[in-house]
Nucleic acid binder design. Structure first.
Lengths: 193, 193
DNA sequence: CGCGACGTTGATTTGCCTCAACGATTGTGG
DNA sequence: CCACAATCGTTGAGGCAAATCAACGTCGCG
């Protein structure tokens, strides 16, 4: 069963026993998402915390010129949401779009809070999930303020090898904060070495 | 009493009752830190989660060329640590240094876990603290990949007005990911407008 | 007093962007 | 399943943003 992927995600933290699995299963919604389908759009309120069981998503913001800026890729085993919109119920500034046919499990804020209240283990687990996300994001800040485009590209390849073959370079460029043209040049220069 | 500043920090989340305040007070260490004193150095293990009651700190990484890159400023009311080093007990990659005479409260990992276990409210509160930090950090990633130096400087002024007069421009430049010389030019150009 | 950190300016160089063009690949509707 | 459209990857010319390097005056501090 595909919901096993959700359960086993918690094995990275405090694993769930069968009662807790039942608890969780009763509060998530399973959805099938098509490629190019949005699960969140700008100005929507983010109503769900999403676990990706299969497939891949991008979370991005669109600037005044209409250019997309990728903030996160989320593939199998990753969690994603628009955190400000979700907790403060403010209009989302970002889009979340499937870049592959996907299967997800979503949990609403009331259901999530119910889990938090019913069992401290959920508080703990979701705290650790957020902490891991913070580590990733801080690393990215450091790279952005201290590394060249080439260094950032090499770091991306190293950190997300499983994404490399699944993403067009335009998406990677957007994530790295450079133009597709310049990424092409970076790749060419790397091949010479 | 200065420890009131620590207690009232939780009023932003789930406020503590007096039993919980006592619990917390019994597990934190109060320290006075001099300007230019380090509370964490590279390769140390980060043993404490730190709350700044008075003063200001910078958290930064030093690259191969010896250049500092500021990842975070923490003034009164802010929490800081090296999250990877703290949780995984790995050598820290960053330094944390006081840039003003400061008073802090520190909690060790065992004591923090004791609070987590004794009362889910602490799990909850520290989860929210981390979530807020993630929001800040994600905003910074977005700015880094999509904004010019001038835009980032203006955003910094707007977001941290209380820090502006307390920091030399070299430190702000390091935070923004630009050279002090270029920040000087940005400021000059802004004055013309 | 003297030294080191700071802020600024100018000249030069470099990293990256913009715009335009093109073939190759992918996706899609008929 | 094919034909056409859209997206993608690449290249090159030119321009701009930001770094580098050097110099100099100011200020706080020991």
């Amino acid at each position: 069963m595909i919901i096993e992927k959700l359960f086993s995600n918690f094995d990275n933290y405090l694993p769930l026993n069968s009662a807790e699995k039942q608890d969780l299963a009763g509060r998530v919604i399973q959805r099938k998402i098509k490629r190019k389908q949005f699960i969140l759009q700008e100005n929507d309120i983010c109503k769900h915390y999403t676990f990706v069981a299969e497939g891949c998503f991008k979370k991005f913001q669109v600037d005044d010129k209409g250019t997309e800026h990728n903030l996160q890729f989320a593939a199998e085993g990753d969690w994603l949401m628009e955190i400000v919109s979700f907790y403060l119920e403010k209009p989302s500034r970002v889009y979340i779009e499937a870049i592959e046919p996907s299967v997800i499990f979503q949990i609403s804020k009331p259901d999530l809070y119910h889990l938090y209240d019913s069992n401290p283990k959920f508080d703990r687990n979701f705290r650790v999930i957020i902490e891991n996300r913070l580590v990733e994001t801080e690393n990215r800040v450091l790279q952005a303020i201290s590394s060249t485009a080439e260094e950032r590209y090499l770091a991306f390849i190293k950190q997300y090898p499983h994404l490399l073959s699944r993403l067009p370079n335009t998406q990677i460029a957007s994530y790295l904060g450079i133009t597709p043209e310049f990424l092409s040049k970076v790749r060419k220069d790397l091949l010479k070495k």
